[in-house]
Simulated scan of single mutants.
Amino acid sequence: MSRTFHGSNLRKGRHSQARNIYHITTVTRGRYLWFSEHDHARTLCRAIQRSDQLSASDTLCFVVMPDHLHWLFMLGDCYSLSHTINMVKSSSARRCGMPIWQRGYHDHALRQEESIKDVARYIVANPLRAGLVSRLADYPYWNAAWL
């Protein structure tokens, strides 16, 4: 019996195209609440900013949840989608000093008819839906280009 990892199934048919807009969701290993700790959450926020500085991404919005990340961005010209995601995940794990991420991630390339702002609203509303805060302004680990 051969074993196939779910992560390899996630990569089947994955398409990486510069200047496409992607919604990425990636979770922590064992869904552990690493990002409940302020320093870990800020480390991930800085890793996303660094990706933008390296022109790997142009972030439209993100929200760091206690056990996962939602990130909406335009992929830059210099790195593939998987390289960009792996850069952010490995950088944040290295700075936190531990292997915090589950292998793989879910990606969705936005179609032309999809509203970027509607997807962004859905992403940044995650802390409200999860009951972490009653007002988005009270949640510190998100950002959106429209602010």
Rank of each mutant, 00 (worst) to 15 (best):
M1N: 15
R3V: 13
H6S: 11
G7E: 10
G7M: 12
N9T: 15
R11H: 08
R11G: 11
G13Y: 07
R14A: 12
R14L: 15
S16T: 10
S16D: 12
A18F: 10
R19Y: 08
I21R: 11
Y22V: 02
H23R: 14
I24L: 10
T25M: 13
V27S: 09
R29H: 03
R29I: 10
R31T: 02
R31A: 02
Y32C: 10
Y32T: 10
W34R: 08
W34L: 07
H38F: 07
H38C: 08
D39Y: 14
H40Y: 14
H40T: 06
H40W: 02
L44V: 13
C45Y: 05
R46P: 01
I48T: 03
Q53P: 12
L54Q: 12
S55T: 06
A56T: 13
S57T: 10
S57Y: 06
F62V: 01
V63M: 02
V64I: 06
M65D: 03
P66S: 01
H68V: 02
H68K: 11
H68D: 00
H68P: 04
W71E: 03
L72T: 01
L72Q: 09
F73T: 02
F73Q: 13
F73W: 13
L75Y: 04
L75M: 01
G76H: 05
G76P: 07
D77Q: 05
Y79N: 14
Y79P: 10
L81D: 07
L81G: 04
S82K: 00
H83F: 09
N86Y: 10
M87C: 06
M87R: 15
M87Y: 15
S90K: 12
R94T: 11
R94Y: 12
R95P: 11
C96N: 09
G97W: 10
M98S: 07
P99G: 00
R103P: 10
Y105K: 12
H108Y: 13
L110N: 10
L110D: 00
E113I: 15
S115P: 14
S115T: 01
I116N: 08
K117C: 08
V119S: 05
A120N: 01
V124D: 00
V124N: 01
A125F: 05
A125E: 12
A125P: 03
N126F: 13
P127Y: 05
A130N: 12
A130F: 05
G131T: 01
L136P: 04
A137H: 13
D138A: 12
Y139R: 05
Y139I: 05
P140K: 12
Y141I: 08
A145W: 15
A145E: 02
W146I: 11
W146S: 09
W146P: 00
L147V: 14
